[in-house]
Simulated scan of single mutants.
Amino acid sequence: MESNYHSLKRRDNQLLVITHLSQLLTYITGFGGLIAPLIIWATQKEKVEDMDAHGKSILNFQLSVLIYSLISIPLIIAFGLGILTLILIAILAFVMPIINAIKVSNGELPSYPLSINFIS
């Protein structure tokens, strides 16, 4: 039954790439980098092959970035290191979706470093 169900899903690398790149909406809207991939994942995970795994990794990464950012705020006041941490988080949150979109377009598996596994 599982193999038959799996074969009903379509292969759509373009949508997977768009899902990874949709995280960059954070830099335009401030919050779209979590909302857009969540909507794509929720509506397409049953229809697109590998969307469930990609969506979970993206959401885990976005939630991790949010938590790391929230932890960095008190570090600004306490040690001043929070500013450096926020800059590093911003760079990582910008670069990793692009790298993973390229990986996906080449048929490779994405990987997000420092990602906490909230959704498995």
Rank of each mutant, 00 (worst) to 15 (best):
V95D: 00
I99C: 01
H6N: 05
L66R: 02
H20Q: 13
W41C: 08
L92R: 15
S64C: 12
L84Q: 04
G33D: 02
F31Y: 09
G32H: 09
I91Q: 05
L66W: 12
G33E: 00
S120H: 13
L109N: 11
R10E: 14
Y68E: 12
S105N: 15
T19Q: 07
L24S: 00
F118S: 04
K9F: 14
L84K: 10
K45T: 10
D50F: 12
A93K: 06
H6P: 07
A42I: 03
E2N: 10
L114P: 07
L63K: 02
E46W: 12
L16K: 03
G80F: 02
M96K: 07
L92T: 13
S57K: 11
K45H: 13
L59V: 04
I99E: 06
T43W: 03
P74L: 13
G33M: 06
L92W: 12
P74I: 10
L25F: 15
L15V: 09
K47N: 14
V17E: 03
T43G: 01
L114N: 14
I119S: 07
L63M: 10
I76Y: 02
G30N: 09
S120Q: 10
Y27T: 02
L84F: 15
E46H: 13
N100D: 06
T19S: 15
P97W: 01
V104I: 15
L8G: 14
E49Q: 09
P74V: 14
L66H: 07
Q62T: 11
N13S: 14
Q23V: 07
D52R: 02
L38Y: 14
N100K: 06
L70G: 03
F118D: 06
L16D: 00
K47G: 11
D12K: 04
E108K: 14
I87Q: 02
D52C: 03
R11V: 15
N60S: 04
P113M: 10
L25V: 11
